[in-house]
Structures are given as structure tokens and as C-alpha cells.
Amino acid sequence: MKTLREMLAEARRVVPEQGPAELKAQLDRGEALVLIDVRDPDEYRDGYIDPAVNISRGFLEFRVASAAADPNVPIVLYCQTGLRSVLAAKALKELGFTNVTNLAGGYQRWVQSGLPIAKDSPLNTDQIQRYSRHFLLGPIGEKGQRKLLGSKVLLIGAGGLGSPTAYYLAAAGVGTLGIMDGDRVDITNLQRQILHKTSDIGRPKVESATETIRALNPDVTVVPYPVRLTVDNVEEILKDYDLVIDGSDNFETRYLVNDACYLQGKTNVHGSIFQFEGMATVFAPDRGPCYRCLYPTPPPPGLVPS
């Protein structure tokens, strides 16, 4: 049986090491490398070397591909003192990653060298549990969750499209959801507009939407706008949001959302449905077409049922 010391010595023979100063210089030069913190999530939360992603040792082989798709990309691993990470680096080499280095002395020596650390705003215990399934998804992770919690999305319409959109964005933990709709809940809405309940009939849609969302996820701040979007209110309202989702049911609003979003440089996630058909696209200013590229003129009145 091998001793731990022999195992570490064996790993050190095949894994090149570098010191903190060397890593710092590489990061400062903007060199393309993937920095992975293999410590446990609670250690990472207490502070890490920016821009490291956290894939703890136990999951490394399973999730490394989400951080390093190319097996030839330079990878630097670190843990607290450099021991766990040297064993981890050996495992990655055995998996076929050709350019893996270990940070000698780990996070501890990095800190002792007076180099800067990063620390994310803490998630509370409930949030860590609530979003734990997001953390397992490489492209989202805890960092992505923090972005979502800090994001502001404006939903135009709390009807057939806005209902599922609001539900899923609220569940996912989008921190601020503006919901705009000037209508009241009608019994004919209830077969598809799942934000609203039978007892909400007659209430403003934004009111029942706010209640539903708050009950689903207290992390979400709902900003209700019980009005129709108009040329007079659109600019003032839009400017506070990172992203706009158009779930409106009329062409006037769609052109208005399109124009206002373009002029303010906001991305507009567009959707529309009619009976059994629907469509969706994203209008990102100057990265692709806008609604007017698609539909230069509105259809003549009477052509489309209202």
C-alpha cells in the first residue's frame, strides 16, 4: 500500500507547479487559462482567486468539461495548500488534459504573498438550497445565480405569454421583475393565464401576478405597473431594466417596445402566439435585426383578428 507522502510525490513528478507571483503575472497579462478552485464550496465562498471557477475535488472529473472544453487549454488548479490540487491535477492529466499546472502552496500562499482575493456577496442558507440545482449546471453555477439575483427584467403583459415567463423567471431567482399590464383578470383568461386564480377575477392582473410570484419566491422584488405601455411612460420605465420581454397582444405595443428598446440599447425577447401557432426571437440592438426588419409595416386593420 502507498503512503500519502508517496502519492503526493508521484503526483508532483508529473504535475508542473508554479508559484503565486507567476500566476498573478499570467492573469495580469490576460493569458488564456482556466483557473479552477478545487476546494469545497464553503471554502470558495470565504474568498477565492479571481477569476477562478469552483469545481470541488469530488466533482472535478465530472464537471471539468464545463470549464475547459478543450483538453489542450492551459489549466491551473489550486486548493488551500496545494495538496488536494496536485492530486486533482494528476487525475486531469490521466483524463487527457495536456496542460495542467498546480499552484504551489495554494490559496494560503497566495494570500500570504499579499495578492488580491475576491469574495462574492453571500447567499443565505435558503438561497444556497433553493438554487442548488442551478449550481450543478456549469454555465450557471453560483456566479450565474448571483447575476440572476442582481438582474432586472421588465415583462410587458401578464397574460398568456407573460404568465409562464414570469413564473419561470421568478422561480429561477431573477431579482427584480417589472410586470406591466393594464388589464383586469377575466374568467376567460384563466384557462391559459396561469398567474391568476378564480378568486382574482376582476382584480388588476399585476396585483394577482405580484401575489403569485411573491408566494413562489420571496427573493424576487416585483414592481407592478397597472397601466398600458404608452409613448409617454415607456422611456422612463424601460431605463431601469437590463432586459425586456415582450408578451404583448397587439401591434402598437410591439412596435413601441421594439423602437424604445432599440433606442435605449436594450435587448427585447420577443414572443407572440395565435391559436395553435407561436413564434419567438431575440432582438438585440445592432447584433441582429429588429421587429421592423421583420415586419416593416403593421398589417392592415381587419386582417388579423383581435
Partner: peptide, 27 residues
């Protein structure tokens, strides 16, 4: 369609994947 919009929004906010820019998805 609403779920497609929610998914696109999450991708755009977090910054991953291929957004539906310049593509129209019909259902």
C-alpha cells in the same frame, strides 16, 4: 413560447449559450 422567452432571458442575463438573435423560432 413563454418558456422559450424565459429560457432566452436567463441565457442572456447569465451570459451563456446561443441566443435566438437573428433566428425566428416558430412553433
Amino acid at each position: 413560447i413563454g418558456l422559450v422567452q424565459a429560457t432566452e432571458a436567463i441565457k442572456l442575463l447569465v451570459g451563456f449559450g446561443e441566443p435566438l438573435i437573428g433566428r425566428l423560432l416558430t412553433y
